[in-house]
């Protein structure tokens, strides 16, 4: 251990960095693996080309355990108990629910091991693969686990930063990624994600708390409604746990109404989280939660189409918020 390997950065990977969350994260993880021999990546046969660099240059620290996620978590725990910092990677449902009890017992209960579960495919990211591949309850499940840090990045800059943050933080972590590219919200060189949330926009009528891909949606809603004399505040809640309660409460208190939006079941996600926080702290403001209702999505089609089915598209949200404010 301790030997440093010269960093190799491919131009192609650099190009990908600015487009996709998953690629940005993987590129940053590659840099960490170059720096620290204690870091290991385990996958369960996910076919992610974004790991090619790691696979090619560090075959000994890239482990494909096959399609066996329960074993993957145990192997990660065993490695972590022997001094390694481990990343496990799979599509959201398989790296969270398929091996949930293993995460609970092996990673959390056993002593908060330094293992980061990286789930790709937030919400309807795998839009054409049906409900088996939708990531719609992961935030709820992971935030209930003691000791678990839950991270939900909203763009590629943040996804890359979370690779470094998860490496430096002790204990188990869960990171929920999108596969695809997003318009960037943050500037690469100025972003600081230590607060757990960012107040991206001020507004007095409604404060929209959003996470993941829905942060951009909330910003678009705010933009759209600005022209209609509705003043919308936007919070990017990228760290669900541990939650920065004080800062979130302070921001919530500045608006007349609170809304939440997430590509996740309404039950248990950030809508629940904000409701709990408000109730416990006597924040008596109207609350509206946008998310996926209590049913599985059996429709197949473009992600935007799936959003429109649940009225999570820009026009539906903007209209709902506007109608709400204007009474």
């Amino acid at each position: 251990m301790g030997k440093k390997v010269k960093k190799q950065k491919s131009d192609e990977a650099t190009k990908r960095w600015v487009s996709g969350m998953r690629d940005a994260f993987s590129e940053a993880l590659y840099e960490i693996i170059c720096e620290d021999e204690r870091v290991i990546l385990i996958t369960s046969d996910t076919g992610a080309v974004c790991h090619d660099l790691i696979k090619a240059n560090f075959p000994g620290r890239y482990i494909n355990v096959g399609i066996a996620e329960q074993n993957m978590v145990g192997v990660a725990a065993g490695l972590a108990m022997t001094g390694y910092i481990v990343y496990i990677y799979a599509i959201v449902p398989f790296v969270t629910m398929r091996c949930y009890e293993q995460i609970r017992v092996d990673l959390c209960c056993m002593g908060h091991l330094p293992v980061t579960a990286v789930g790709v495919g937030a919400g309807f990211d795998y839009n054409t693969l049906g409900p088996t591949h939708h990531g719609t309850e992961d935030l709820s499940l992971m935030r209930t686990l003691p000791g678990m840090t839950v991270l939900s990045p909203s763009d590629s800059v943040m996804a890359a930063a979370f690779a470094r943050i998860s490496y430096e933080l002790p204990g188990p972590k869960y990171i929920r990624l999108d596969r695809t590219g997003l318009p960037l919200i943050y500037d690469k060189d100025e972003a600081d994600f230590s607060a757990g949330l960012t107040h991206l926009r001020e507004g007095k009528d409604v404060c929209i708390v959003a996470t993941g891909r829905m942060v951009k949606r909330a910003l678009s809603v705010a933009e759209e409604l600005a022209g209609k004399s509705v003043s919308v505040s936007v919070v990017d809640l990228y760290r669900l746990k541990p939650l920065n309660r004080e800062l979130l409460l302070e921001i919530l208190g500045k608006s007349a109404r609170i809304a939440t939006i997430e590509e996740h079941f309404i039950t248990g996600g950030i809508g629940s989280l904000v409701a709990e926080l408000m109730a416990e702290n006597c924040v008596y403001l109207p609350l509206k939660r946008f998310g996926i209702p209590d049913d599985f999505c059996r429709e197949y089609g473009p992600r935007d189409y799936l959003h429109s089915l649940y009225k999570l598209d820009l026009q539906s949200v903007a209209r709902a918020v506007s109608d709400w404010v204007k009474g």
Partner: peptide, 15 residues
């Protein structure tokens, strides 16, 4: 769950 963890420890020993 123990055999998986044993795998991880055995792999670590080898590495």
């Amino acid at each position: 769950q123990g055999l998986s963890i044993a795998n991880g420890m055995a792999l670590a020993g080898r590495i």
